[in-house]
Design a protein around this nucleic acid. Sequence first.
DNA 1: AGTATCTCCTGCGTGC
DNA 2: TGCACGCAGGAGATAC
Length: 281
Amino acid sequence: MPELPEVETVCRGLAPLLRGERIVRIEVDNAALRWPVDLSLLQQKLPGAQIQEIARRGKYLLLCLERGTLLIHLGMTGRLYVVDSSQQRLPVKHEHIVVYLASGLLLCYADPRRFGAWVWGGEEPLHHPLLATLGPEPFAEGLNGRSLWQRAQGKRVAVKSWLMDNRVVVGVGNIYAAEALFRAGIHPLTPVTTLAEESCQLLLDHIRAVLAEAIEQGGSTVRNYRQVHGGEGFFQTRLQVYGRQGEGCYRCGTVIRALRIAGRSSCFCPQCQPLHQGAGG
DNA sequence: AGTATCTCCTGCGTGC
DNA sequence: TGCACGCAGGAGATAC
């Protein structure tokens, strides 16, 4: 399931392949993604346009064209890949969208569960409703323990749900929230309002560290995530709590447990992540 | 207004 | 071997 490291990896993989390419046409086989793909609009905007840059905002990919930007979200199972139209290829299951490029390359989108999105973001994509309400990027300079702590005041929500709220910080999903909390020694149910400012800083440091390591490793291949060239990421071998319930903690040997928090399975080590006031120091 | 739940969807593992 | 079922979860919509 793509989180920030996976989307960033896809972004970095696509950029050198697509930058400067001119779009010839777009074919949509199944428009029933998270929101219906507006085919007539895309057919009006895309053909003839040159791809200037590929960028990322949160978990959204931005395909920046000459006059406007296409927003792409991979949802849970979305996959972008580039193939050469001159080479024969087998049909890909759940391949819903193909963008034909002037060089003969094809930008393809497959998404079994169709939680993803292809949305026209207009000429000022950062003002698009999907992007306008997003919180800061985790690596943004202005983000620090103090600003996080200030925003946590008066909120009783569990720290894990809070981290996954993209108004607080973008890009942190279920996997990396669990991993960052483990590294910071903070119980996932800790009410955010009880976190000390130092704990917020520690947590942010670990969020940044785990995301940076995951990007370096090409993301985590859990279920069907793949890089642009079809290769797997490698960070999944370094996950310390996610998906490890019932197994021993690498640090202390205690059995990793899983709770359901806001409907999401949340793995943690009861020994390394005790639940108490101001947890995490 | 803050918080929790619902919803979309398919593939996969489990149990009978 | 097959089928029902639960679970996986991003994030906007909806309900409390």
